[in-house]
Nucleic acid binder design. Structure first.
Lengths: 232, 232
DNA sequence: ACCTGAACACCGTTCAAGT
DNA sequence: ACCTGAACACCGTTCAAGT
């Protein structure tokens, strides 16, 4: 009678402990490779099958459907987000390290940006990261619901900073042209004089460096704000 | 010789000032409707054509390709993010209002979460929101690059908080079952004792209320942190 | 100037059939 | 237990042809 609403790879057992033929790990590894090379729209079950020297539909024995495969590769990205153990370094430093690690992992696998809004992060690696963060936040002094709130706030910041960054990267293609970018933004900002002052700033000359600065600015602000919660 | 890297609806003229047949506005409106009802994967050019009583491919006269249509509908979401003019209310209040407005607009149109990582926000409505925010941030006292940084930080927070929220909503389907959710999370958190303490908390009984609290907690923290930047 | 239909090269997924 | 191929119901996009 309790209708199963929630479906996910993580709530059903894998087919077999160890299979002789292809394996889930092999498939996931190949999928990540394909995604890194061709992006989310470049991944198809048929092409992935071909890449593994298998028939177009044989992957369906290991994976219920494409979405399940995506859950698997998504957690693979989380596996690269793991920061060093809390250790003796202060909570601000460890949290900053995770934050930077998360951003870098997403930037390395831009297709993952699309998955954040599509799949809850329930995989084992996501859980490990969450657990580490939890320890850091508790070490900082947070208690009760505020532990969850602080974690959510921090990951929200990292995701929110990184996801639109990827939109820009992919929209601009491989090569970056500062002048073209200035032209695009100038055109878009037409009619908003306040925004135009941005254009002749050096912001567009080295976007990567600026983004790092921006990320750090926001992170420091957020950490300061969280610290203030602890004082009261 | 300058290779066109950057393509977007916003950098090319629309076909015609006013056409007698179908119009871009009509198409965009129908697309938003379809997206609200069926989600991003439910929108196809063919079905949209049919909905408008047109042949499967006639939309291609108004829109270069599907991605361009998505840019258009994306900006439509931004049009719902507009907050009241700065007015005499303090910068913290106006910024909070925009933040909540942005979150609500995205929640109303969950498909937009996927677009944030795919399309730079360059449409006229996105620009208007950015312009308003810029005025608020300047009124707060920020100058130079920090104006941009503060804006980016705030929108990052809102996006990052809302995007995974949508992942949860869609994964859980229409009806929410607190016990099922607790079971799912318990299972995922197996092996992380620190995380399990979360389960018996009342967190899952009214997720909507908790999320609001969480959003406010993070927003206040962030605003406090930004305010600290101004002091130094 | 606008719309159509057929056609091309793809998709995810199911399922009976093979080994 | 694992893999295959054919088949179904879709996609986005191009383009010659119509009005």
């Amino acid at each position: 009678m309790t209708g199963k609403q929630f479906t996910s790879v993580w709530v059903r057992e894998p087919r077999k402990p160890a299979s002789p033929g292809r394996s889930r790990e092999e498939i996931v590894r190949a999928a990540v490779e394909m995604l890194d090379e061709e992006g989310l729209s470049g991944l198809s079950m048929r092409k992935l099958g071909a890449k593994l020297g298998a028939g177009a539909t044989s992957l369906y024995w290991y994976v219920a459907h494409k979405d399940e495969l995506l859950e698997l590769v998504y957690d693979e990205v989380w596996s690269e987000m793991i920061a060093p153990d809390p250790g003796r370094v202060g909570w601000r430093d460890s949290v900053s390290a995770v934050a930077h690690g998360m951003r870098q992992a997403i930037l390395r696998h831009p297709w993952s940006a699309d998955l954040i809004g599509r799949l809850p992060a329930l995989g084992p690696h996501a859980m490990l990261v969450a657990d580490r963060m939890r320890k850091m936040i508790k070490a900082a002094g947070f208690t009760g619901k505020e532990v969850d709130f602080a974690i959510s706030t921090l990951t929200a910041y990292v995701f929110g900073m990184t996801i639109p960054e990827i939109a820009w990267n992919t929209a601009m293609g491989d090569r970056y042209d500062a002048d073209e970018m200035r032209a695009v933004v100038t055109r878009a900002a037409a009619g908003h004089p306040d925004m135009l002052e941005r254009i002749d700033m050096d912001t567009y000359d080295d976007p990567r460096a600026i983004r790092e600065m921006c990320f750090d600015f926001g992170l420091v602000s957020l950490l300061d704000g969280l610290e203030r919660r602890l004082a009261t």
